[in-house]
Design a binder for these strands. Structure first.
Lengths: 231, 231
DNA sequence: GTCTATATGACGATAGAC
DNA sequence: GTCTATCGTCATATAGAC
């Protein structure tokens, strides 16, 4: 476990390139399955090779080390989460209501994390000794954060935040909420599905809290009802 | 790694009993140190024995298995956190102001978690494959939750919650916030101290959110200011 | 690219002498 | 209670034949 760089591609035809890509995908799939059963730190190259149907040394044709395989899982997880969030945002369109917008965002990210708990633990926690993501593997995570920031800037431009809000601080607080829901659900009731999880179902309450502080105060309707009456 | 039960105490004088207790304490101390360096899942009995100055088999005189040692770390962590919280509550006395009360509570728990990050990861996350706390080890954690619940009931009795609040739901939401702050701080900036952590310093903001939803609405002063103007 | 064979070493846990 | 000796298993990683 000394090198972490990915193996350089061998030269060859596009067919060979494509075949290699598929094999790598399969190995990563199997690696996630093994991590799901044995914990993120319980990944074993021997077990991966056994399930893929090759011998352990053959894995080194595709991954330079065990950490390189972790990197692949880490990077693919962030890329998938990023794609999922992009799809959700595309469906939502321009933000018009803060509560709706944030509820969808929280549900999307926490649902993905619960459904992909193994990858999520590697991404959100630091459970594996001696594994630190390589810069290449980090890239999709950085893109994810940048995209979230752009999204929050749109929310601000739409006038949905309280005037004067620090967008970066608002984003940081937001990550506290989503990671708190995920962490509590995973650590205390990992087998509950998203729909009925004792913490995932608290998302509306969490969003309500967030909007109360960061949202633009509602212009009081006749009668002066405050948001406090929304429940 | 088959049995998880603790070794029964051998009969003997009180002196032998005391000596044994000290040895166990030392082993747990060293185990935490090893986990701090190698990650929670990187605990090695050989390394522990080496540092304690005995051979590996001698560890089995005090702990029936590796998981039993994890149990000791887990239980001692919760007991320490429980003691720390009790001390903080004793100093606070009866709750009179919700914001003050919760800020102190959050700061106490998160500060302890950041200062004892290794134990806290074992307690709040599930980083170790094949380790599930034994019921005995869970006992202090259960006591901690019960104590927190009693504390929240006092807060309700003092009229600091919004009328009609579900105390258990309020408690669950509260744990989401504290674990979110801890998780984000540990996963993203583990070396920042509590005082200047980019997430620990967000505790006042998090409490503000919580109070906005669960706190008793301020009786509007002359002019009808809502809590939204508190910032 | 895949294989056999192997280097090299950790690990947790047990048996039994002292 | 501590030790030596050892079991059995598994791991990551490399060398070199095919």
């Amino acid at each position: 476990m000394t090198t972490t760089a990915a193996r350089p591609l061998p030269r060859g035809t596009d067919r060979r390139h494509e075949r290699r890509r598929q094999t790598i995908e399969e190995i990563v799939d199997v690696a996630v399955a093994v991590m799901r059963e044995n914990g993120a730190a319980g990944l074993s190259l021997g077990e991966v090779a056994r399930r893929v149907g090759i011998r352990t040394p053959s894995l080194y044709v595709y991954f330079a080390s065990k950490n390189a395989l972790y990197d692949a899982v880490f990077a693919r997880g962030w890329q998938q989460l990023l794609d999922t969030m992009d799809a959700a945002r595309a469906e939502l369109g321009q933000p018009t209501d803060l509560t709706d917008y944030l509820t969808t965002a929280a549900e999307t990210i926490v649902r993905w994390a619960v459904d992909n708990a193994t990858s999520a633990q590697l991404m959100f926690w630091r459970p594996v000794p001696d594994y630190e993501p390589a810069p290449d593997a980090y890239a999709p995570a950085v893109r994810m954060l940048e995209r979230s920031r752009e999204s929050f800037l749109q929310v601000e431009a739409a006038g949905l935040f309280r005037p004067g809000v620090d967008v970066d601080e608002a984003l940081r607080t937001w990550t506290v909420l989503t990671s708190g829901v995920f962490t509590q659900q995973m650590a205390n009731a990992p087998h509950e599905p998203f729909e009925t999880g004792r913490f995932t179902t608290a998302i509306p309450r969490v969003v309500e809290m967030y909007v109360a502080v960061y949202g633009r105060p509602a212009t009081p309707a006749r009668g002066g009802r405050s948001h406090a009456d929304q429940r």
